[in-house]
Amino acid sequence: MLEILRHTPSWVYIVFTAILYLGLSACFSQRLEIRRILYLPAVFIVLSVYGLIMGQTSSFLVPLSWVGGFAVATGGMYYLTLARRHRYSRDGDYLVAPGDPGILIVSMFFFAVKFWFGYTAATRPEWTAMPLYPISDNLCSGLVVGFFGGRGLAQWSIAKKRTPEELVAPNGA
């Protein structure tokens, strides 16, 4: 195991630290700036689609698996996020999202799975030639992007539906 960590590129540790920070911060109630809610999901979508295009696969199932994972996760997270209790800051410029350790758990799970795909590609390149490998990898990528995309989309739609009486949050937040 220590050998795996020694040969891991340094950028992976940076990504891990960023995901860990975002996941830990999501465990607590957050003030989300309404105009920035969709930034992170947009970055994930751009990077994931770029990776999908650069994969240069001839099978239509690979992009289809990404789209399927994206659609399922986006829809699921959209409705799960809508079910959570969000409120607004007094000035109305922030959406106050409740803390959720599920974000940390799911983020770490997806990181571990994507790390495994990268490790496998580096140590067993013959596996990447199997048809199920790129399909599974891109399905996982679609799920990750959809997870954050659905959450961001739901928070954005909550923010856009606000009414004047909702601008003052209960408990003085």
Rank of each mutant, 00 (worst) to 15 (best):
L80N: 10
T81G: 09
T81D: 09
T81Y: 13
T81W: 13
A83L: 07
A83N: 12
R85I: 08
R87L: 06
R87G: 02
Y88F: 15
Y88E: 01
S89Q: 11
R90K: 15
R90A: 14
R90E: 10
D91I: 01
D91E: 06
G92Q: 01
D93Y: 05
D93Q: 12
Y94K: 10
Y94I: 00
Y94Q: 12
L95Y: 12
L95Q: 12
L95E: 08
V96Y: 04
V96Q: 05
V96N: 06
A97P: 00
A97M: 05
A97D: 01
P98S: 04
P98F: 04
G99D: 02
G99P: 02
G99I: 03
G99K: 06
D100T: 10
P101S: 00
P101L: 00
P101K: 00
P101I: 00
G102S: 12
G102K: 08
I103F: 15
I103T: 15
L104G: 01
S107P: 07
S107F: 14
S107C: 12
M108C: 00
F109L: 15
F109Y: 13
F110D: 01
F110I: 10
A112T: 13
A112H: 09
V113Y: 01
V113D: 02
V113N: 03
F115A: 06
F115D: 03
W116T: 04
W116N: 05
F117L: 05
Y119P: 04
Y119M: 06
Y119V: 05
T120P: 02
T120H: 03
T120M: 11
T120N: 06
T120F: 05
T120K: 08
A121W: 12
A121I: 09
A121Y: 13
A121P: 04
A122Y: 10
A122H: 06
A122P: 03
A122E: 07
A122D: 10
A122W: 10
T123E: 13
T123A: 09
R124L: 14
R124M: 15
P125C: 05
E126T: 04
E126L: 10
W127I: 14
W127Q: 12
T128N: 03
T128C: 04
A129K: 13
A129N: 08
M130T: 14
P131M: 09
L132S: 14
Y133L: 04
Y133T: 02
